[in-house]
Every structure is written in C-alpha cells, then in structure tokens.
C-alpha cells in the first residue's frame, strides 16, 4: 500500500511536471496551428476515404497479393479493429486465419477475403435466433440500454409490429426518470393503437412494472413490453434498480421477463462490449436490438458482442418510421458490413 501511494504521488508529480512541460511546449501547437488548415485539410482529405467500405480497404491491402504474410495479417488486424469489430474478436479472427495460412489454405487475397467473411458469418450466426413470443402468455419483453440508444422508439416499432400480427400488446412506461419519456411512449402507443400503463414522473419504476404485469394478465394481453430509463452501465445504483424491476416482474408473472432486449446504437464503438458485459451480468440479457443502421454506421461492434457473449441479435432498426424495424439476417448483415 505504501508503495502504491508512492506511485500515486510520483504520478501526481509527473503529471504536474508534465503540465509545466506543456506550457513550455506551447510553441508546438502554435507551430502546428500555423499551417493549421493545412494539417486539418490533409487529415480531412485522408478521412474522407473512411467512407470506403471495409472490403474496399481489405481489397486495397490484398490487391495482387500472391502471398499472404504476417505483415498483411497485421494490417488486416488493424482494419478489423477500426471497423469497430473489437480487439479480442479481431485477435480471434486473425488467429483462425493464421492457422488456415499455415495449412496453406489461403493462396491469395481472394481466398483470404472469402475466409474472413465466412469466419465472421459463422460467429454471428452461431447464436442467431428469431424471437419466439408464443412460448408464454403474456410474453414479457424488457427493454434496456444506455441513454439515447433508441429504446422507446424500438418499443414503439415492436408494438406496431406485433399488433399488426394480430397480437394484443400492452406497454409499460418504466422510464419515470427522463423528462417526458412516458409521453413519448404514449404517443408511440397511440400510433400503434396500443394501451400504455404509466405513472407520474419520478414514480418507482417497479410500481409501474407491477401495475403493467397486473394489467397484462387482467386484460389477457399476449405481449407486455416494458420500457426502462436509459442508464449508463457504470452506475451501480441504477443497475441495482434494474434487478429490482426484474424481481417484481418475476413475482407477478412466472418466468418474466421472457426476453431481456439490450438496445445498442450502431454508431457505438468499443464501449458496446463493456455495456453488453455489465448489462448481461446484472440483467441477464437474452437478445440485442441494433438501432440507427440507417446512417453510415455499420454496427460492426455487434460482431464482437455476439461473439464474446453469445447473444443473438434479434432486430435491427433502419429508420424512424413505425415499420422500420426488421429481423436480423446474419448473411445480409455481413454483406452490408463488407
């Protein structure tokens, strides 16, 4: 402990001297700023190429390569990481490719590309399975995720979809924290022609869920979808609240929630892994919905998430319209990713 504290002070000192040095090197940023637009222009021009698809870059890398060597694989590793595939999944992929290379299965760039595609596909389809809502009645879906990923919107789309399939759906506005979250769900409910159970803002989410469960049973609903407040996975007390909500649900409807859907934003980077890990630990996530795929984000991170945690991707969100929620198709996704 004493050593650690020493380290702490040393670190602090380093930091302080470091700050001093920054003021000394003030010349430096000015120097950089001088041809400032130049530097940024250059970067910008370089970056515009990121619009190139993953495969575009892989193609450039492999173009005319008669032989695949260690350097090529190393560069490929970087390309995969930068497609938000996550570090451990990338390392895993590269290892597999290396083995194939040793067995002389990869003669040229084309073979490598096909092998890579196949590997990614097998990883995400391993656990792929559509959501079967017929296994229980009412079938309870609890929707969770960090702030701003599109939980409420996803619920609205789900409600419309299941209603169109002729099922009786009930929504519970478990987000009692964010301003006007219940109103937002209410509007989605009205659009889909579905009833919404809601309380006052600031109410206990467990109480809303309790009422929602009671109502679902009483009104003979087929599906109950529960909205929750967005929470960063690092907030311990909010994660505890999630556990409580689950307990209440399980007490009212045996086996509930039958599906715990984690909503991920396609634009999220490496942090999605941390999100999936912690949400899975505390709330026992059983499926993923990937939203906002209508932008330029490709959502490469779900490869990492479903590979590392064996979680199936259930839905993808491709727009703001009511019917812009689709089933996840692994083959289609890999095509789009490349």
């Amino acid at each position: 402990m004493i050593e650690e504290k020493k380290g702490f002070f040393r670190g602090l000192m380093d930091k302080l001297t470091g700050t001093e040095d920054i003021s000394v090197t003030q010349e430096k940023p000015v120097e950089v700023e001088e041809p400032g637009p130049g530097l940024f222009e250059r970067l910008k021009r370089g970056l515009s190429k990121t619009h190139d698809s993953l495969v575009g870059r892989i193609d450039t890398l492999l173009l005319g390569k008669k032989e695949i060597d260690a350097d090529t694989l190393e560069e490929l590793e970087e390309i995969l990481i930068t497609a938000d595939l996550g570090v451990s999944t990338t390392v895993d992929l590269i290892k597999t490719l290396e083995q194939k290379l040793k067995r002389n299965e990869l003669q040229d760039g084309e073979a490598l590309r096909a092998a890579l595609k196949g590997e990614i596909l097998s990883r995400i389809s391993r656990s792929a399975a559509p959501l079967d809502t017929g296994s229980a009645k009412p079938f309870v879906i609890m929707v969770i995720g960090v702030n701003g990923v599109g939980k409420t919107t996803t619920i609205g789309k789900l409600a419309a979809r299941y209603t169109a399939e002729g099922k009786k759906v009930l929504l519970a506005a478990g987000d009692t924290f964010r301003a006007a979250a219940a109103e937002q769900l209410q509007i989605w409910g009205e659009r889909a022609g579905v009833e919404v159970v809601r309380h006052q803002e600031g109410a206990d989410p467990s109480a809303v869920v309790f009422d929602g469960c009671k109502a679902a049973v009483a009104r003979d609903a087929d599906i109950l979808i529960i909205d929750t407040a967005g929470r960063l996975h690092t907030k311990v007390n909010l994660m505890e609240e999630l556990k409580k909500v689950r307990r209440v649900m399980g007490r009212e409807i045996p086996g509930a929630p039958h599906e715990t859907l984690l909503v991920l934003d396609a634009a999220t980077g490496q942090n999605a892994i941390s999100q999936a890990k912690i949400f899975k630990e505390t709330a026992d996530v059983t499926g993923i919905a990937l939203t906002k795929l209508d932008g330029t984000a490709k959502g490469g991170i779900v490869v990492a998430v479903s590979n590392e945690f064996g979680l199936p991707v259930r839905f993808i969100g491709v727009g703001e319209g009511v019917d812009d929620l689709r089933d996840f198709d692994p083959a289609e996704f890999v095509e789009a990713l490349f």
Binding site: S48, T82, D84, D265, A267, A272, A297
Partner: peptide, 14 residues
C-alpha cells in the same frame, strides 16, 4: 456528440 461513438464519429462530424 456521444462519447461512446466509435469510428463513425469522423463521418458524422465532418
């Protein structure tokens, strides 16, 4: 901008 954004941040910001 969301601090959790991945590589996509560049496209969006530009």
């Amino acid at each position: 901008a969301d601090a959790m954004t991945g590589q996509e941040a560049v496209n969006v910001a530009s």
